[in-house]
Design a protein around this nucleic acid. Structure first.
Lengths: 341, 341
DNA sequence: CAGAAATCCACATACGTATTCAAAATATGC
DNA sequence: GCATATTTTGAATACGTATGTGGATTTCTG
């Protein structure tokens, strides 16, 4: 392997100085067309690439963003939240379009990620993605703000939060989900998902559901709310728990598609028909939602738009522009798990 | 935001020179315990992090790997191959364990990715992931080898290929798939997937299938092989094409789960029962495979092991160790799409 | 054709770290 | 108490790039 060529090597071959090479390759107008072409030719021939480390050091920027995934609880391999995985494509593409590289990392929420990355100049900014105990988040977000780190978080967005958070309209999504069930004549809607303040997204979806039911004069039965974290197993367990409780229910609003999928399995295991006996609606519209049997009606989050807004949000912060907390619309996707459309 | 602290700042506060700070923080034994502790305390207090750019420049390494995804044909957002997405978790975790960062990027196979990343010192090595036209690959792989780039590719592994390729045993997987269908009494096995040399993985799976059939004295009907790229739509089209052809078939071996899912939809649209009328088996064992109706029997690739081997393979290359072409075992996962067990 | 303006380029330097080498400080042995 | 061995630190420097500044050459202008 030939040793890596530097701008000095090119300079020597071109009979100019190193700074001229640097300027020529960056397209500075102070270099004559003629020498520029000569330098470019040599650079190409030597397969020269600007050394990013040297360049970054000089320019004091990395043109790299860091994407931090959180998966808790499930530090093992059991799988990544499919919704975030969908977002990944959009994030990488947007980064590429903006001329940024993307560093990716899986983190435990409890770890020390908040002091790394930007401080060590691995990245100019950070995107945080993941559900998780909000109490664990808050302190670290405050620390990030205090350090002046550029970051944007995907999740529950509320005023007065440390830093910028971008999320979807969980409350309205919850309303839409419950309304859809109500329109199909369901009156006893169970909610599978943690509705504590530790999981504000889920809580918001639940609140939306209650609100919609209130609009019809229905008071949501609190016993129909069963805690569940975001996994198929949790969904399965929660549905089993629900069926064991002997409470009356004719519909399930699952806080996520993943939970819904687990719950559907539980219903089937107990011989309940979907949607005849129990209608079910999810949240996220992960790819698997269209494959379930019956296909899962759900609330879609626009992961494509989300990815763009997250990336552009961080880039704005890097340029010291204000980035307001944003709420993206959620959209009902009707399939067959609540009855024919 | 306080300006970033450097090793000089620490040196000044500690009353020592900058090199001493550097040595202390790297744990050099030539620094006395006492001064090391003092320096560490100050570093912590200033929230000091080593500047990776400066450090990398000095050390001439990045401790970063680049992961390049290829999705062709589908440069749009339609979705990332779920199997590779599964591998992503394993790759990032392994990288983290080995103390490396992971840079991720989606690429068009046709683009100029092969001259970037390592040359520009963004990464010490590259992992290539993705199906695609092998002819397009080959030239670029040769270029990479010529440049001395450290890289490992996931895909079809054969002797004499440029660079190191790690893949699963597609041929044996094909045999196992076909044998399973044969054991269920199927005698007319269609294959959905491109069997040209441009898609060697698929070709290998097809060859395995033919081999297994040959073992039973069956000559595979070439008209039952329908080209399909790796998408649900392609699977749907291919299955439609197959049914239109009026050839007799009682089983489908889909070159990937994604194709299988598309094909199942086509079969259902034409009123065919799975597995009663047509048995179907896929390849990959993507998460969605267990959700189809009926659940899809398939050949599992061990993405977890694959991720580890890929990362360790590149790291070995970086240490100038030989990395042999490796073939990972494939494993039959029996669900219900080929009949009971 | 002289002087000014414009063009093009080289010199010097900074980014922050890690290492080589030599020097200073301390400990050891007789 | 002095010479020697040992430990600990500092001065100098290199990694490769990008840019401010000023000098040289060319071109323009009257």
């Amino acid at each position: 392997m030939a040793v890596k060529a530097t701008s000095f090597d090119i300079a020597q071959l071109a009979g100019v100085s190193q700074p001229t090479v640097s300027r020529a390759l960056r397209g500075s107008p102070t270099v004559s067309e003629q020498t520029r072409l000569r330098i470019e030719a040599i650079a190409k021939q030597l397969n020269y690439k600007v050394d990013k480390n040297a360049s970054n050091l000089r320019l004091q920027e990395t043109r790299t963003l860091a994407l931090l995934f959180f998966e808790e609880p499930s530090p093992d391999d059991t799988g990544i939240n499919p919704f975030f995985l969908s977002m990944l494509g959009s994030l990488t593409r947007t980064c590429a379009q903006r001329g940024y590289d993307l560093l990716i990392s899986f983190q435990q929420l409890s770890a020390n990620w908040h002091v790394d990355y930007e401080d060590s100049r691995k990245a100019d900014g950070i995107i945080l993605l993941g559900y998780g105990d909000y109490e664990l988040y808050r302190a670290k977000l405050e620390k990030l703000v205090e350090q002046g780190t550029h970051f944007v978080r995907w999740g529950f967005a509320e005023e007065g939060q440390p830093g910028t958070t971008i999320g979807c309209d969980n409350f309205r999504g919850g309303i839409d989900a419950a309304r859809h069930l109500l329109q199909h004549g369901r009156r006893n809607i169970a909610f599978l998902g943690d509705a504590s303040s530790h999981y504000p997204e889920f809580q918001d979806r639940y609140r939306g559901s209650c609100e919609a039911q209130g609009g019809e004069g229905i008071v949501a039965n609190p016993k129909l709310q069963i805690d569940a974290l975001n996994s198929q197993e949790a969904g399965y367990e929660a549905a089993m728990h629900l069926m064991d409780s002997k409470e009356t229910f004719d519909a399930i609003f699952a806080a996520s598609d993943t939970i819904a999928i687990g719950a559907m399995r539980a219903l089937r295991d107990r011989g309940l028909e979907i949607p005849a006996d129990v209608a079910i609606i999810g949240f996220d519209d992960i790819p698997a939602a269209s494959l379930t049997h019956p296909p899962l009606t759900t609330i879609q989050q626009d992961y494509r738009l989300a990815g763009e807004i997250l990336v552009d949000g961080v880039l704005k912060q890097i340029r010291n522009e204000q980035v307001p907390t944003a709420v993206l619309p959620a959209k009902l996707i009707v399939r067959n798990s609540c009855g024919s459309h």
